[in-house]
């Protein structure tokens, strides 16, 4: 990884830790934990203090690391597409049920990973959706979300 993204990553972690630490001083926490020797944010504050400390160390290391120009070979559309597909599937599951989203999601996953034999892909996506549903909902008795659009 190059130097600049490393610095940005370290900064982002530091900011996140700082924001979470600041949140522990929110008014609501001050009134909590009456009667107990320590406040509920006592433990998270210790953790977040260490978080900030380590964030600073990582940031300094990233700044001091040599600039190292490596060609970036990572693709980004595919993982982003995959994340979006999973997100949409989870969101839509409440109406379409497990099978309704599992088939399309499986298809999207195979496609984004470069599988291009369409007929096989569709067949396998549909079959694996139905099979996994059967396995959990029927065979193992773990009820899955059902189709609600009627």
């Amino acid at each position: 990884m190059n130097r600049t993204p490393n610095i940005i990553f370290a900064l982002a972690l530091l900011l996140l830790g700082g924001a979470l630490f600041a949140h522990s001083f929110a008014a609501r926490y001050a009134a909590m934990g009456i009667g107990s020797p320590v406040n509920p944010v006592f433990f998270p504050r210790i953790l977040l203090g260490l978080w900030i400390l380590l964030g600073v160390v990582i940031l300094i290391k990233a700044i001091r690391s040599p600039v190292n120009f490596k060609e970036n070979t990572h693709r980004w559309q595919e993982p982003l597409g995959m994340i979006a597909a999973v997100a949409v599937s989870i969101w839509a599951m409440r109406w379409l049920g497990y099978i309704g989203v599992a088939g399309p999601l499986a298809f999207a996953c195979g496609w984004l990973l470069g599988y291009r034999r369409l007929v096989i892909l569709i067949a396998i996506a549909a079959l694996s959706a139905i099979f996994t549903w059967w396995l959990f909902d029927q065979a193992l008795g773990i009820p899955l979300p059902r189709w609600r659009l009627t």
Partner: peptide, 11 residues
């Protein structure tokens, strides 16, 4: 269509 069909069957 396949997915919808299967889901309808279920429900």
């Amino acid at each position: 269509a396949i997915a919808v069909g299967a889901a309808t069957m279920v429900a």
